[in-house]
């Protein structure tokens, strides 16, 4: 495909508006927020607001990668925030099993393998539960995943007994605040997950199958696509991504906060996916969702560094997001250009 064709391709066109919104926010900061683009190398690490944006967006990016695929099958996964809380709670409990009983001393240091694998196993299980409800039993996705969204946080609180479990575990903390090749490790994790997902869905037929299911699940079944199995695995994958995001957040603050970890992040992930240009049931773009997450996070970081009054922060955020969503709507754009075209008529 030559360059001009690629610029005209539907994939690029769909990406254009979210990318422009992101560039717009960054440009605003370039002119009005001094030092925003300043990146220095401190102790062999990249350091600056831009790195912060990518690093803070990492958990939601992981959620958004999983959510994109779920969206493409025509579903939604509301439970990701709660699964994050569960996975963090389990990880902290594996490190300090007796903390909630009031024992403050550390026992022997747990192996990193157990600290990672047990929470991820339960995250997969959470995803399996969602998948079974949706794909096998046939409950509406929004209801099916609502169950775990509500119950999951309760489960996480049961695990930590309502306490914030703090811990010290150097190898595990690396997941949240370590650096590799000068970049924060969460960013590396996202890049890895993104690449694997991209290759799996775009270099094999899997992506098309997922889109087919989202567009018309009955027709895709008649076509010979194993619709149930794929839907099931998409929810399991989303659970896995949420579990990984939970580990990052938990390792970053060196504590499992079951009340607040991942709270309302499912909504951020959904917003990112929609801003990124993925439609409910059908064509999806993982890269778009990543851009969507970056838009939301650069907005947050802009607000924090510039010092917008906290009382109006949410209104400000909502305003920008609705603007981005509107620009993406073809009807809205036509309304605009239509009016301009009409104005032109008497002039000519």
């Amino acid at each position: 495909m030559n360059q001009v064709q690629w610029l005209r391709s539907e994939n690029f066109q769909r990406m254009l508006w979210p990318l422009m919104a992101l560039v717009g926010i960054l440009l605003f900061n370039l002119f009005f927020t001094p030092g925003f683009f300043h990146i220095e190398i401190k102790d062999g690490r990249f350091f600056g607001s831009l790195v912060d944006i990518a690093n803070r967006a990492a958990p939601v990016m992981l959620l958004a990668i999983g959510m994109t695929l779920v969206f493409a099958t025509g579903g939604v996964d509301l439970s990701v925030g709660a699964v994050m809380a569960i996975s963090g709670a389990i990880a902290a409990t594996v490190i300090r099993p007796d903390y909630v009983k009031g024992v403050l001393e550390y026992g022997e240091v747990q192996s990193l393998f157990l600290v990672l694998s047990i929470p991820l196993f339960f995250s997969l299980l959470a995803g399996l539960w969602n998948g079974l409800l949706v794909a096998v039993i046939g409950i509406q996705p929004i209801i099916a995943t609502l169950i775990l969204m509500v119950a999951g946080r309760g489960i996480a609180q049961l695990i930590t007994q309502g306490q914030i479990v703090v811990f010290i575990h150097e190898p595990f903390q690396y997941i949240g605040s370590g650096f590799l090749f000068g970049l924060p490790f969460p960013i590396i994790l996202v890049l890895l997950t993104f690449t694997v997902t991209y290759l799996l869905t775009r270099r094999t037929g899997l992506g098309l199958f997922i889109e087919a299911i989202g567009a018309n699940s009955v027709a895709s079944r008649f076509m010979g696509i194993r619709e149930r199995l794929i839907t099931l695995s998409v929810y399991i994958f989303s659970g896995f991504c949420a579990g990984l995001a939970g580990l990052i957040v938990c390792a970053d603050i060196k504590a499992a906060d079951a009340n607040n970890a991942g709270l309302f992040l499912e909504l951020d992930a959904i917003a990112a996916v929609i801003i990124g240009g993925t439609m409910w049931g059908g064509r999806f773009t993982i890269f778009g969702s990543i851009v969507g997450t970056l838009i939301i996070q650069s907005l947050t970081t802009t607000i924090l560094t510039r010092g917008v009054a906290p009382e109006v922060t949410l209104v400000f955020k909502a305003f920008v997001i609705i603007l981005v969503a509107l620009i993406q709507s073809e009807k809205f754009r036509r309304l605009f250009s239509g009016r301009m075209a009409r104005k032109k008529v008497p002039a000519s």
């Binding site: 607001s49 906060d257 560094t305």
Partner: peptide, 14 residues
Amino acid sequence: RAKGKEVMEAFLKS
């Protein structure tokens, strides 16, 4: 904790 860390990070940057 998580929000406290994120906000402080931004304060330190600016």
